[in-house]
C-alpha cells in the first residue's frame, strides 16, 4: 500500500501519447465500482462450504491443543529436572489448558472486532 498508492498517483506521464480516454478514468472507475455489490472476501467456497468459518474454527482448535501440548511438555521437562514427578506435570497441564482458553478467547475477541 505504501508504494502501490504512490505508483498510481505520482508517476510522471508516460513519454508516449497517453490513451485519450484516461482523463475520465477516475469517474469510470467509480462508476464500475458502484455497480458491484460489496461482497465479503471469499465467504463461501465451492459446495457452499464456508472456508472462512472453517479457518476460524481450525485456528481456535489448534490454539487450544497446542497450548495443552506445550503445558504438558514443560511439566514433563521440569519434573525430570527437579524429580518431582508427577506434580509439575499436573500443574502445567492445568496452566496449559488455561493458556489455551485465554488465547482462544483473545482470538475470538479479535475476530469479533475484525468482522464489525
Amino acid at each position: 500500500m505504501f508504494v502501490a498508492a504512490q505508483m498510481t498517483d505520482d508517476r510522471p506521464p508516460q513519454p508516449g501519447a497517453p490513451p485519450p480516454d484516461l482523463g475520465d478514468f477516475g469517474d469510470r472507475l467509480r462508476r464500475a465500482q458502484g455497480q458491484n455489490e460489496p461482497v465479503g472476501p471469499q465467504e463461501t467456497g465451492a459446495g457452499g462450504v464456508n472456508a472462512k468459518g472453517m479457518g476460524a474454527a481450525f485456528r481456535i482448535a489448534t490454539e487450544l491443543i497446542a497450548a495443552l501440548v506445550v503445558g504438558a511438555g514443560l511439566g514433563l521437562l521440569l519434573d525430570r529436572w527437579l524429580g518431582t514427578r508427577p506434580i509439575l506435570l499436573l500443574v502445567f497441564l492445568a496452566l496449559g489448558m488455561a493458556s489455551g482458553i485465554l488465547s482462544a478467547f483473545r482470538e475470538a475477541k479479535r475476530m469479533g472486532a475484525a468482522s464489525e
Partner: peptide, 16 residues
C-alpha cells in the same frame, strides 16, 4: 499462563 501462551506460538503456527 502467559509464558506458556508465548511458547505455544511456534507450535500452533506451524501445526495449523
Amino acid at each position: 499462563i502467559e509464558i506458556i501462551g508465548y511458547l505455544t506460538r511456534p507450535i500452533s503456527l506451524s501445526v495449523r
